[in-house]
Amino acid sequence: MSQQVPALPDLPEATVARLPEYLRALHHLAESGNDTVSSEALAGAAGVNSAKLRKDLSHLGSYGTRGVGYDVALLIDQIEYVLGLTQRRAVALVGVGNLGHALAGYAGFGSRGFRIAALFDADPGRVGEHINGLVVRHIDELPEIAEAESIAIGVIATPATAAQSVADRLVAAGVTSILNFAPCVLSVPDGVDVRKVDLAIELQILSFHEHRKASLIALPAAGGLTALPGGLAATGTEEAVGS
């Protein structure tokens, strides 16, 4: 029995954050020749529990079929529709240093529903450079190119000192969604969405987990207490009060 793609639902943010993981897993299943998938198998491929997955997909009006599971192709269509990936969205990338250069050359965006439509930099030494079939333009050309290419998404890969200025330029050019790789917090008007990717923060979070694992291993020899700065002590098994 076929299912119709529902009207665009108002999804919880946590569900929206998991949909790309489901989509990645579904594309892999489709490429492997799978027409259907159980909720348990899809949840395992996406790294979530099956109850959470079923609840997320129910928001899309997709409940699967008992004994069969989910139709892989249909579920791909539903998720891509909800995520707005039925059109290849044009993206502007500002800053073509080491990180920006790598992002500009990444071939995976095309298969995920995006195309890097324009590259910008303020450094005259980089303007005119060819990267992955695109010519780096000067940032001053942003307004007219953003209009010509119908760009609504911008990626900032500049140093932190330039990021706010770049964000202001993107917003002025009509960009309403920004992915920020610069290690800073941006101030943008209401109606502009910002996602921040800070690799150092992710490493610091992993460092916490490494530190915690090491302290737990050392607990017996330390008498069950771990000294903290400021004269505090923690047992290593309870959350710090006031955090």
Rank of each mutant, 00 (worst) to 15 (best):
L29M: 15
V194I: 07
P124F: 03
A214F: 05
A51E: 00
N132D: 15
A107I: 08
G47M: 03
V94H: 00
D77P: 00
A41D: 07
R24H: 11
Q204L: 12
A160E: 11
A73W: 00
L19M: 14
T161N: 12
E210H: 13
V68N: 12
G84H: 06
P229W: 05
S243P: 02
D121K: 06
V155K: 04
G236N: 10
I139T: 04
A160I: 03
E239K: 13
I139V: 12
G47T: 05
S50F: 02
R18S: 13
D198Y: 14
E141W: 02
L83T: 12
S58T: 01
M1V: 09
E144A: 13
E21V: 02
L134S: 15
S39C: 02
P6D: 09
G154T: 08
S111R: 15
L119K: 04
A222W: 10
A43T: 02
R112D: 02
L42D: 01
S62D: 06
T176P: 00
G231D: 05
S50H: 09
S38K: 00
P9D: 08
P183R: 08
T15Q: 02
S243N: 13
E238W: 02
L228F: 12
R212N: 05
H138Y: 01
P20I: 05
G230Q: 10
H101W: 12
V135H: 01
F181K: 00
I217K: 11
D56C: 05
G242A: 11
T158N: 07
P143D: 09
R126L: 14
L228N: 12
A173F: 13
S150M: 10
R24A: 10
A30V: 04
H27W: 13
G44K: 08
E210G: 05
E13N: 04
V96Q: 08
V241Q: 15
V48M: 09
G242V: 06
S207V: 04
E238Q: 08
T36Y: 03
E238M: 03
A43H: 04
A104D: 13
G95R: 04
R54K: 15
H211Q: 06
D123I: 05
A43S: 09
A118H: 09
R54W: 00
L57Q: 01
A200M: 13
S39I: 07
E239T: 11
Q3N: 08
T36P: 00
H27C: 09
V16W: 08
L219H: 03
L225E: 13
H211I: 11
V192E: 05
R126M: 07
L219K: 03
P159V: 09
V5K: 12
L232K: 15
I151V: 15
R88H: 14
A17E: 01
R18P: 14
E129M: 14
L179Y: 09
A218R: 13
L19W: 14
V241S: 13
A234T: 14
L170R: 05
I145P: 01
E40A: 10
L57C: 02
K196F: 01
N49S: 04
I139K: 02
V5N: 10
I151Y: 08
P183W: 12
I153P: 03
P143R: 01
